[in-house]
Design a protein around this nucleic acid. Structure first.
Lengths: 206, 206
DNA sequence: GTCTATAAGAAGATAGAC
DNA sequence: GTCTATCTTCTTATAGAC
């Protein structure tokens, strides 16, 4: 990894732990193994580093969205995929989703940084709501909608059903971000949540 | 309101908007209508102001917990109260809870401040989890447990049922904190959520 | 691209008059 | 208790040598 990118990486780590204002240019430089002034050969200001992090996230996200859209679109057309989906245990879907969000290093640091900085301006607030509320609800709504269409979940309001599926996952995730020691509790609760969700929405056997 | 308390009030407003590190002693003083050095006659440091805010919240909270405990304890003994509870529409309970959390000025500012500062140290993380996760789940679990005992909700796991009730409320609250313009959407979604909750857990009629 | 030296400007806090 | 003046330290950023 080149210096320019190492700066972003170390900055993200620090921003996610202390917040933008409590991280000094010298701290970032130190972790990269250079002196503060050298850093200005790569980025013209501290703010530029922050903005580059946001920019990089946008790129990663668009990439992910593209790949999800491809499988998403074909899924609506290709009944094979959501038949396969309907066989998959819902518990696995939730657990994998949760553990990915929680353990993926980049995802976790970015989420924590955004949590701290979300009230700084409207753009950051919008990014937060999009990434951790609107997009998950929309994507999972699509998946659960297909499972429902296959007759394995019963509801007349997929949106609310999706909220019932995702909101507990979101809450447990924020708990673990604050205190990783509660991960075991969170995983147990998550399992119970999904089993109950399964029963409530009338998923019968597999 | 005396100067000492006005300082806390203005500091809380600023901390909740920008976070501790982005608020300068002079900013607080200006809003109070004095100069920065005068502020040091009331608090010995900027950090002391922050700690006084936390301390004041602890006092308010203990007070509230005491009053809730009184009605809580008597409720378990006095069947009248939870009979009355079972008559109350669940939608109202959720809506009132939500609007109180959202609109009460002190509650809202304190929650936003804690959201920004939650990763600063373990104490703040614990306060956040206690105030916005553990305590609501515990208190609402008690209420819903009584309603279930009265036969109006069916479940073999009150904890998960309570999570299903509260998690969407929590998620919608964080959405409104970031963007007050989404309050109308949140209230509509909240109503739909509770009606669905009602149906899922087999609450029959009123 | 990295360094040392340093400018330029905050920001927290104190001294001492009123 | 409030003010003006000031101290000290920290922090971003630039200059210029290597």
């Amino acid at each position: 990894m080149d210096t320019k990118h190492r700066i972003l990486d170390e900055a993200l780590t620090l921003f996610s732990e202390r917040g933008y204002a409590n991280v000094y240019v010298g701290d970032i430089a130190e972790r990269v193994g250079i002196k503060a002034p050298s850093l200005y050969k790569h980025y013209k200001s501290k703010r530029a580093i922050f903005e580059a992090i946001i920019e990089e996230m946008n790129l990663r996200f668009e990439e992910q969205a593209r790949s999800l859209n491809i499988s998403g679109t074909s899924a609506t057309e290709d009944s094979e995929i959501y038949k396969k989906m309907s066989e998959t245990d819902l518990t696995k879907l939730g657990r994998e989703l949760f553990l990915y969000y929680l353990h993926d290093d980049y995802t976790r640091r970015f989420r924590k940084m955004l949590t701290i900085e979300q009230f700084h301006d409207k753009e950051l607030a919008d990014i937060y709501s999009k990434l951790y509320v609107d997009d998950p609800l929309s994507y999972q709504g699509m998946l659960l909608g297909m499972v429902a269409a296959a007759g394995l979940l019963k509801t007349d309001d997929v949106e609310i059903m999706t909220l019932h599926f995702y909101a507990p996952i979101y809450l447990l995730l924020t708990v673990c971000d604050r205190d990783p020691k509660r991960e075991e509790y969170a995983l147990e609760t998550l399992d119970k949540h999904i089993r109950q969700f399964d029963r409530l929405y009338g998923r019968t056997g597999k």
